[in-house]
Amino acid sequence: MTDNQSGRSVGTVSRRKFLASSGAIGAIAVAGCSETDAENGSGELSGEVVVKGSSTVFPISDEMAQRFMNQYPNVNVTVDPTGSGGGFENHFCPGDADVNGASRPIKPEEEDHCAENDVTPIEMHIAGDALTMAVSPDNDWVDCMSFDELAQIWGEDAAETWADVNSEWPDEEIERYGPDTTSGTYDWFSENVNGGGHTTEYEGTEDDNTIIQGLENSQYGIGYFGYAYYSENEDRVKAIDIKKSEGDDCGSPSLQAASEGTYPMSRPLFIYPSEEALQREEVYEFINYYLENSNADWIADEVGYVPSNQDMVDENTSKLEDAAGE
């Protein structure tokens, strides 16, 4: 573990004195200067920021990291998709990661695990997602499914064939592709759609691109993942409209529907920096940059998620300042 990862501050000065001595650093973070400005004004900030967690949150965090490093070339930000639960359990709560992305709120047992290691997670709601259920483009028998039908496919007592769910569907074995059990997407779907359970008869992975490939190559396949992965691969898979119950209208996954709350599988996305890591300048500045840009248009246009609104930005910024003793 590097000195930066172990929780040491950059130098011995306070954050306020550090920012005063570095002059243009704060202005660069706010204004988004050119690379030349970054080289001239941000060279004093250095270190490493380690981000783990949700594969759903990964595209946002990874893009934030790339943009941040363009402005602060002496800071190395690594982002790895380990799953929400996998990130908390194996990296963040043991103190080996500074930030954990999550597609569901932290669990009480995870908070206890963090507390055992003197890690204090700070919850920040940073985006919204439309969890997407998809099938092969060759699937011509289903366009909309209810929560009950989804639970018959994905619940603990899962149907074996499509015809077991609906007699008008093919009498062919269902091939399932989904997130690993360490995933927050798995947790959210199990709790909110399946009623708490989840079949073990599926191919689980933390690589959502593997799910895309599985559906692309399987006429009788079905799988689910964050909307960003669907928006990148609309020509490779077919999204299924969703309704909560049989009497409801079918809703298509979209950013607008997620933002309005009209899509049944809309959900919040989070990042959890630790209070201890925020005492290090490079971590504080990365999270500050993340929050300042969390309502940017490119999050919807380039990544495919619903950006933060200004109230969320303000609330998260207040949490950041409180955690850092501002």
Rank of each mutant, 00 (worst) to 15 (best):
N217Q: 11
P108K: 10
N90P: 00
D80G: 00
W154L: 13
I242L: 12
V77M: 08
Y186P: 07
T132V: 15
I153Q: 10
E89I: 13
L278C: 02
A29W: 00
E44R: 14
R8C: 11
G23Y: 09
G155N: 14
D138G: 11
A158W: 10
T199P: 07
V10Q: 15
G53Y: 06
F68G: 02
N309A: 05
G304Q: 04
D157R: 13
A29I: 12
E216D: 11
D164H: 09
C93L: 06
I240P: 07
G7N: 01
S294A: 12
G197W: 04
E281C: 05
G155L: 07
E282W: 08
G226K: 02
S34E: 09
A324N: 11
A38V: 07
I242Y: 08
E48H: 09
G43K: 14
P121E: 08
L19I: 03
A257Y: 04
A134L: 12
E48C: 01
E292R: 06
G43D: 06
P59E: 07
V30S: 15
A239M: 02
N194E: 11
V119C: 05
E285C: 01
V13F: 10
P73V: 09
A296R: 00
G251C: 00
D171I: 08
D235T: 10
V119G: 10
E111G: 00
H113N: 12
M69Y: 08
Y227G: 02
T12D: 15
V75Y: 06
I25S: 15
N288W: 01
V306Q: 07
M124Y: 01
L255E: 15
N76D: 13
A102I: 03
E123N: 03
S266N: 12
V303C: 08
V75W: 02
A38W: 09
Y305V: 13
D3A: 11
E302S: 11
V51S: 03
G184W: 09
G304E: 01
L269A: 03
G11A: 14
S6A: 12
I174R: 07
S218Y: 05
E282R: 11
N117V: 06
D80N: 05
M69R: 11
T199L: 02
V51Y: 02
W141P: 02
S34Y: 12
K319I: 09
P59F: 02
N70A: 12
A115Q: 06
S6Y: 02
R267F: 15
Q310G: 01
D98L: 01
A38F: 06
N74C: 04
V50E: 12
T82L: 10
A258R: 06
I153Y: 12
V75L: 04
E292I: 00
A324E: 06
T210L: 07
S294T: 07
E168H: 03
Q66W: 03
A97C: 05
D241S: 15
C93G: 02
F225G: 02
R16Q: 15
